[in-house]
Every structure is written in structure tokens, then in C-alpha cells.
Design a protein around this nucleic acid. Sequence first.
DNA 1: AACCATAATGAGTCTCGACTCATATTTCTA
DNA 2: TAGAAATATGAGTCGAGACTCATTATGGTT
Lengths: 171, 171
Amino acid sequence: MRADAERNRGRILDAAEEVFAQRGAAASTEEVARLAGVAIGTVFRHFPTKEDLLAAILKRLLARLAEDAAGLGGADGLHTFFTRLVQQAAARRMVVDLVGVSVPAAVGRLGDAVGELLRQAQEAGTVRGDVGRPEVMALLVSVCQGALQGGWDEGLQARTLAVVFAGLAAR
Amino acid sequence: MRADAERNRGRILDAAEEVFAQRGAAASTEEVARLAGVAIGTVFRHFPTKEDLLAAILKRLLARLAEDAAGLGGADGLHTFFTRLVQQAAARRMVVDLVGVSVPAAVGRLGDAVGELLRQAQEAGTVRGDVGRPEVMALLVSVCQGALQGGWDEGLQARTLAVVFAGLAAR
DNA sequence: AACCATAATGAGTCTCGACTCATATTTCTA
DNA sequence: TAGAAATATGAGTCGAGACTCATTATGGTT
């Protein structure tokens, strides 16, 4: 791959992440091109379809989250990851709109990472033994979506998470 | 208002509810007109803007929910309402997309109804006294959104709600 | 029944955004 | 450094969907 092609590909991905995070997936490809400093044709050369572009940034995002999760663990790892993710979601409109774009492998890897955090938390006795990975993922998605919508302030977010954690807690 | 006008207004609202519930808010006004059996110009005569149409059905929907909630009460009222709402949400794509359309008065009335259910549940000792209406509403919105996304099956939905209820439960 | 205000009709306008492609430019290789 | 081959450019095409409006139809009234 030519040097300029690789450089542009990176710029486009960065620009797309920025634009879609702020304006949602409905933002135009035109705008991504403008921010990246390339012509619109270049965007379509690298990503033949808008959906391809969305899938690419979603994959990157999920990989980053999985990596983040891998750096945590112990009794509070799940708690920390959960809170961090919800905070990020509130700042990024993206998640809502990425519904429909799927990157199975990347989602699977994130699921594995969360499963591991859950296992450790259960081993440490922080979390009930009778909840599974699917419920935890479902709650994670739900609360992120909720946070995106309501424009929760910090206090409400904390209190809402507290209820969820109480539900997950052992005893 | 002329008789045919009123009849058509009703048909349009019904058709819009059906179409947007199935296809999401991105469905075209054209399709609503077709299902209602009127010309597209008629839809725009009654609702000058697509957003007006969305707001109208959202208002009707929220009013119906508030009424539903008013018929419940006691120790399990909140539990029942919560479950029912999540089940409905799973069948309707609408909710996701209605983000952005706001009908403050109708939302307020639903909030009051939920607040009353919460009060009764707390009085009956079913729910912790230290959670407030905002958290409950936040959880309600979150879980509905989550259910819409993941294509939860019945079991996962039940287990996820169980965690939330455990978090809300007294003791 | 005749009248007209109100409403319905639907082809047409307009905007927007995804995607294309002929042309110009840049990188790399020999 | 000349010559491809790869890449970038951006005006243009295309389709979709929100919204308009001149015309036609209908309901209610005298």
C-alpha cells in the first residue's frame, strides 16, 4: 500500500470516529471527508460503503474496549469497567446508531473480556454466582443506551448504577 | 371539523403507529399514507411536519402507558408495570427512534404515574426506600432500549429484569 | 338543489446524501 | 529521473423522501 494511501486511511478513520461520535451515524460522508482533509472520492476508495466505514470504526472501538477490560480484574474490575463504559457512552452519540452494524468477532472478544471480569468478581465474592455473562452484557448495553438518551447528570448516573450494582451484588 | 377530516385523522394516527412501530421512525410518510388509505397531501394537511406526526403518536402512546400504570398499584404494581413495558418495547422499534421528539407534558404525566407506583411499592416494603423516581425512570428507559437492541429472548429478558429488581428490592 | 368553505388528491419540486468516474496527481521502481 | 501503477480529486449522477399547490371532490348549510 502506498504511503499516502495508508496515511489517508488513518486520517479518515480518526475523522469518522470524531464526526459520528458527535453527530451520530446520520452524519454525512462529506463531513467525514472534510474533517479528514481528503476528497469524498478518497473516502469511498478506502471504504466502498458508508456501512463499511461504520463497521471499521466500530471494530476499532470494540477492540479498544476489550483491551481496556483486559487491563482490569479482581473484585472491582467489573464495577470499574461498567462505570467507565457508561461514562464514555454518555459522551458519544455513536453507540445508539451503530445498532444494525455488526462486527461479530469484535463483539465476541469484548464479551469474552467482560466474562472474565465477571468470573473474577464472582470468585472474589463481589458478585452473585447465579448471574451469567449474557445478563451482564444486556445490562451494560441497556445502561449505556439509557445514559445516551436522558442526558443524565453525574448524580443520576451514579444512583442508577448503584441500583444495578446492588442487583448484581452477592447476598 | 368536517366528519371526513376527523375520520382521516384517526386513520392516519393508527397507520403511523403501526408503520413506525415496525419500521422505525425512518419509515416514509408515503407508507403511512398508503396504509391509512389517504393521499400523502392529506397526511401533511393534518400534520404539517413528519415530526408533528411522530410527536402526536408519542403523546398518545405515553398517555396510554400512564393510564395503564394508573390501573396498577400495591406491592407489585411497579414490578408488573416495568415488566409489561419492557415486553412491549421489545415488540416496537419505535422507542429507539423517538429520541429527540419530545412531548414534555405527556412524559411528565407518565413520570407521575411511575412515581405513584414507586411510592406504593416502598410503602408495602417491596422496594428500598432510598431510590427515587429519577433512578426508576432511568432504569425503565435503559432496559427498554436494551431490549430493543439485543433481540433478547424471553429468558434473557427475565434474568436481566431479575437483576434490576434485586437491585431495587428492600434489604 | 345550489352554494361554498373545507378537505382530499397526487404529480411535481426541492434538498440531501450516497456513490461514480474521467481526469489529475503522487508514489515507487528500475 | 522517466514511466507506469496506484491513488486522489470533485463535479456529476441517482434515488429517496419531505413537503407544496393547483385542481378536484365532499360535507354541511340555507
